[in-house]
Design a protein around this nucleic acid. Structure first.
Lengths: 217, 217
DNA sequence: CGCGGTCCTTGATCTATCTCAAGGCCGATC
DNA sequence: GATCGGCCTTGAGATAGATCAAGGACCGCG
């Protein structure tokens, strides 16, 4: 079970910042800038190299160039979106125009800076991202934790869970599944135990968080 | 109780599109373009004029210029954000630069187009916005409906609702409120009736939708 | 004052749900 | 093959919750 940190004790500075740029000089100077600010940095020469390392579930943020051999910064954003990643991405570019910036922002970029950019502006953006990342990280930790518990349920237990979320009473669930109401109660109790839910209310909130048994509609 | 439309029968074309621009010629040409596309248009000469009309809870989208006397397009975005409005906003500008575009997008603009823009591009953006607006509109209708029901609860009923959402059993709630468990049951039943909830599960989902008794944490 | 209305409160009763205890089935392991 | 563990299943009794029916406090109104 992932640790859950209260927001203000969250170890922001341990979350690595990934720099993706094909220019050695840029990587070095960015790394230097961020490390001087006491931040942990990992540099990658291409988006592919970053992805090959396995997209970290937990990262502070990503700083990427747009024009690069292989995947461009925009393509990286698209890839991250398909992966459902919520890592904040700061896009930097030497040849930016408005349509490109708009596209990057639409794809969820947290910031779009034109070179040469102000060091302070970048640092400010990074800090903003780290704060956001800390929030998302906590949410994600909770959600993946809940998803794990759901995965740990047996088939019957999962069925009962879903019917429970629909709002059916035990006896209705029993009828639906063609078993005794008594048996449903056992699964229900198991679900509560395995999901570590102290109440039905909590169970419903957990399920919604994990995207099970959708909203009201 | 607001009607609920299945997504594809939603009357998109009845949702008005608000054009905000201080240039008469621009308003007219935009109005003409959109009306030819069969869309309903309302034009405003300034952001202030639009706001004074009362920000409509239901609108297709807003097309606004950036540079205007009075509130600028960016300031309009900020205002809409403070109001919690989710109306999609398309920003158009004759003198756009990257930082301005980025700022507008950060403030939630759906699109940022530079003049002279392609008519088809604008129409495509508008249609995208209308689709989004239809989705949000349905969500908002449901939420405001739920909020109304909550507002219709008596004080005791609301207290019981909150403790119920926390996951407390009736007898615990009774102890907390210093009344008989039996009495709690009455409020509980009233809450279910007034909220039109068929089950506790549904009640919890409604409450979460209305932002009452927050997420897991 | 007497009236209707809403809100808060409760008892008795019936129904649903949770707790304790336990048997049959199947695959994995020794 | 025997044993162990997990899954599915159930009964009887205790507990919590829903339903039926109703009294007292407060407020505005005629």
């Amino acid at each position: 079970m992932p640790e859950t940190f209260p927001q203000d004790t969250f170890p922001k500075d341990t979350l690595p910042i990934h720099i993706i740029d094909d220019d050695d000089a840029v990587r070095d100077s960015l790394s230097f800038l961020l490390e001087c600010a006491g931040l942990k940095v990992q540099a990658h020469a291409s988006a592919g190299a970053f992805i090959d390392g396995g997209v970290p579930a937990t990262a502070g943020c990503i700083i990427t160039d747009v024009r690069m051999p292989g995947l461009s910064g925009v393509e990286l954003l698209q890839y991250l979106n398909t992966r459902g990643s919520k890592i904040p991405v700061i896009v930097v570019t030497g040849h930016g125009d408005v349509p490109l910036a708009v596209e990057a922002m639409k794809l969820g970029a947290a910031e779009f800076l034109e070179k040469p950019f102000d060091d302070d502006a970048l640092l400010a953006a990074v800090r903003t991202c780290l704060t956001q990342a800390a929030l998302h990280h906590h949410q994600d930790a909770v959600r993946s934790d809940v998803e794990e518990r759901i995965a740990g349920l047996s088939q019957r237990e999962r069925q009962v869970l879903e019917l429970l979320l629909v709002g059916h009473a035990n006896k209705v669930i029993a009828h639906d599944l063609g078993i005794s109401p008594r048996t449903v109660e056992v699964y229900r109790a198991n679900v509560m135990t395995k999901m570590k839910a102290a109440s039905l209310s909590e169970l419903v909130r957990m399920a919604l968080l994990a995207g099970v048994g959708g909203p009201v509609d």
